[in-house]
Structure formats: C-alpha cells, structure tokens
Amino acid sequence: MAAKGEKHSPLEQFEIIPYSKTEFGGYDISFTNSSLSMIITVAVITLFLTLTVNPRSIVPSRMQLISELMYNFIAQLLSDTVGDNGKKYFPFVFSLFMFVLIGNMVGMIPYQFTFTSHIIVTFALASVVFIGVTILGFVNHGIKFFTFFYIPGVPFYMHPLLIPIEVISYLSRPISLSVRLFANMLAGHTLLKVFAGFVVAMPFFTGALPLAFIVALTGLEILIAFLQAYVFAILTCLYINDAYHLH
C-alpha cells in the first residue's frame, strides 16, 4: 500500500537509478538499473545459448531445440529477405534480435527495468543499423548508391518531388525504427502501471477487474515484446537487402 500523499506516476518505472557513481574521462558512466538490465539480458542469452547446446546432441533436448529454433528462425528470415549475401550479417542480426527480444522479456518481469523503453538505447541500436547499412551500400555500389533515391519508371517531372521524399524517408529510417520499439515498450508498460494504480485505488473487491485486465495485458505485452523484436530484425534484414539491390 502506498503511503498517503506519496505520488506514484506511471512513468516512475522508467526512472534511471544509478547504483554507483563512476566517471571516465569526464563522462558519467555510472552503473544503473538500466545497465543491470542489459547485463541480465546478455547473461540470459549467452548462458541459455551456450548451456543448452553444450551436449551438442544429434537428437536435441527440448532446451537445445529452442536454441536451434531461434537460430533457424533468424537464418530463415535473413535468407528469405537478403538471400545468400545475408549470411555474413547473421551474427549481427541474431544478436540484435536476441538482445531486443530478451530485453523486452526481462522488462516484463515485475520490478525489472526495461532498457528498450529508452529512446536513447533504441536510437543507438537503430543508428548502428542505419550507419552500417549506409556504409554497406557505398561499399557495394560506390557513388551509384545515390541512384537508390531515383525511382525508375516515373515521369521525369515527378523526380524533383520524389527524390526529396525518398531522401527524407531514408534518413528517417533510424527514427522510425527506434521510435517504433521505444513507443511500444513505453505505452505497454505505462498502461500496465496505470491499471495497477486502479487496482489499488478502487474500493472493496472491484479492484479485481483491473487486475484481470493486467493479466490479459501482460499476455498482450509478451506478444508485443516478441513482435517488436521480430520487426526490428526483419527491418534490419530489409535495409541490408536494400544496400545490395538498389531497386
């Protein structure tokens, strides 16, 4: 029970709490709840993928099968969208998918911090993808990469309009990619917190109703957690594909 007069904002859960004050070269690199969440995520992924596959059995155990399914899921995704060129980027896309997926899932655990609900984190991830793909495009096509913004088969007088649109849509890729994940996580967790506030605020046993809602919403959030990781991975694949095949 919240003490009287104490204010509980639904956004309070996104507050970053530093556990120790660390500075490096004048920059604050304190270990925070966000960092802890990231470390838990990475630990879960590495331990799971290592321990389950450790027996290297031809007939897999259930846990080993999960690891293999995830491997095949991303491998299939990459080969469907990019083709044979995509094999080189498999470790990156797989890491990205697992990082976002398990990050979202760790965030679903009560009292756990969701680092994917912070725009700076998702924007950094999206920027890595965007910058990487742009470099890849220039490496593959050189100066011809700019023809990416030129849409063939369109009347010539349309180009002054279309080329700026194409450039803007290309440049907004990191924003759309990062905001999509950030906004989904933010909205989902805020909604859960709002309903949790109702459970406490409503009189007698009527609080059971929003509680039931929370249970349903948690299921939905787990679905969204997976879906957003999938969307992040598939868009990365599509951007890589664009860097190979301009049009």
């Binding site: 690199i29 960092s35 990231m38 995520t41 290592t50 596959v53 470790p91 890491s95 697992m98």
Partner: peptide, 27 residues
C-alpha cells in the same frame, strides 16, 4: 544518463555480439 546508457549498451551489446559470433552460433 544518456552517456552512461550508451556506454553500457556498447559494452553489453559488443560482448553479446562477439560471444554469439565466436562461441554460441558456431556451436
């Protein structure tokens, strides 16, 4: 906490990428 988050993101994600790339995925 932007710098801190970016720093820890870089550290954890780099570790994850290298670990998966070199150890888990080959297995």
């Amino acid at each position: 906490f932007f710098i801190s988050q970016l720093f820890w993101l870089f550290v954890t994600f780099s570790f994850l990428l290298v670990f998966l790339w070199r150890i888990s995925l080959p297995r």
